[in-house]
């Protein structure tokens, strides 16, 4: 069996395989809920209902999608340049730490500036966390997959130390958590009374900005050139290391915004469970979106909806919420396969 490229894929081919992937994912999930002793149709219905079935559910999904949009964008930007940033988790926590440092009284500023300074500081921190690995890559050829992955553990353990030591909330009854952000440091809600904060708005704006950068600017052109063919880019006079460093700064900054938005918009303080793996899930989000920045918004909503819906379904139907992980994993694998099949044809022999 071999793959031969399809030069001009038909519309049926472009849409058929992804549709098949979604259908297969649904069938797989149905089978699993049967195994768990529940009616598959009811399970799926409950997942959808839990994700978008009510105002509360929808807002919960949007809230959950917010950090995923940021980390998804971070990954999409980096992967576009073939910079394999697996460390969005670390960059997210770095952003969160700086948000807490600035937001708990280190500086005091009137409101719009306060948020700008916190977000800027967070982005800087996230960018710096990725700068080390990318310099190691451009200077010494060290594989960034390893270094960025390991940075996740280093940063998480460092945060753990901070929360047990210097940043520990003296009023926290001994729990490893930071002090709460000042009231004026908190991001306001988009609609008063509903649990959706302006972090979501910032995420949408970021996606638009990233899209503009990628399609309309020379930097975006360079990033795509380096990602598609490093050798030709270098030959044409593009400084590959400079482009990779700038890409890393942008990627790290975006991931850090997830930390900023979660702390300033949702939690109000920093704990070690701030992120249930948003940095890693961002990879799925970015891949499902084919690295397209506007697609990231859609796929982040989809992924968030499945998580939120599965949580709610689990409470109602008794099917373990782990089904969300399986759904996402199989959706990703099948979608990657489907996209391959839209571009290549399998030939026997």
């Amino acid at each position: 069996m071999r793959l031969e490229p399809v030069t001009a894929p038909t519309l049926a081919r472009t849409l058929g395989y992804p549709a098949l992937a979604i259908a297969l994912t649904v069938i797989l999930a149905s089978g699993l809920s049967l195994l768990a002793g529940a009616n598959p149709f009811a399970t799926l219905g409950l997942i959808i209902k839990g994700a978008v079935g009510s105002k509360f559910a929808l807002l919960e999904t949007l809230n959950r999608a917010t950090p995923l949009i940021f980390t998804g964008l971070a990954i999409a930007v980096a992967f576009k340049a073939k910079l394999w940033n697996i460390g969005a988790e670390a960059q997210l926590y770095a952003g969160a730490v700086v948000t807490v440092l600035l937001g708990t009284g280190a500086v005091g500023l009137p409101q719009p500036f306060f948020w700008v300074v916190m977000a800027g500081g967070a982005m800087l921190a996230g960018a710096l966390v990725l700068l080390g690995p990318v310099l190691l890559k451009t200077r010494l050829g060290v594989d960034e997959v390893v270094t960025t992955l390991l940075m996740n553990f280093i940063v998480l353990l460092f945060v753990s130390y901070l929360l047990e030591g210097p940043m520990k909330d003296p009023m926290g009854m001994g729990w490893p958590k930071s002090a709460a952000l000042l009231r004026e440091a908190r991001l306001p809600r988009i609609v008063p009374g509903l649990r959706l904060h302006w972090g979501f708005g910032l995420a949408l704006v970021s996606a638009g900005v990233v899209w503009l950068i990628q399609t309309k600017t020379t930097l975006g052109y360079e990033i795509r050139a380096v990602g598609l063919n490093k050798e030709a880019a270098r030959f044409a006079g593009i400084s590959v290391s400079r482009v990779l460093v700038l890409t890393a700064l942008l990627s790290g900054g975006l991931a850090a915004l997830a930390g900023f938005s979660e702390v300033a918009g949702l939690k109000g303080n920093l704990t070690l469970d701030l992120s249930p793996g948003f940095g890693y899930t961002g990879i799925i989000v970015a891949m499902l979106a084919l690295l397209h920045p506007l697609g990231v918004v859609v796929s982040a909503l989809f992924v968030a909806g499945i998580f939120v819906g599965a949580d709610s379904m689990s409470r109602a139907a008794g099917v373990p919420s782990y089904i969300a992980d399986i759904l996402l994993a199989s959706a990703l694998l099948l979608m990657v396969l489907a996209i391959l099949l839209t571009r290549f044809r399998v030939v026997r022999g």
């Binding site: 600017t217 020379t218 052109y221 063919n229 030709a232 880019a233 044409a236």
Partner: peptide, 28 residues
């Protein structure tokens, strides 16, 4: 010499996209 997945336009400006002819202040 070329980036296979780039269009002809994108390839033809590969050596000169930063010139004043093809971009201004970083915008293509």
């Amino acid at each position: 010499g070329a980036i296979a997945d780039f269009t002809l336009t994108e390839n033809v400006i590969l050596e000169s996209f930063k010139s004043a002819q093809f971009s201004r202040r970083g915008w293509m």
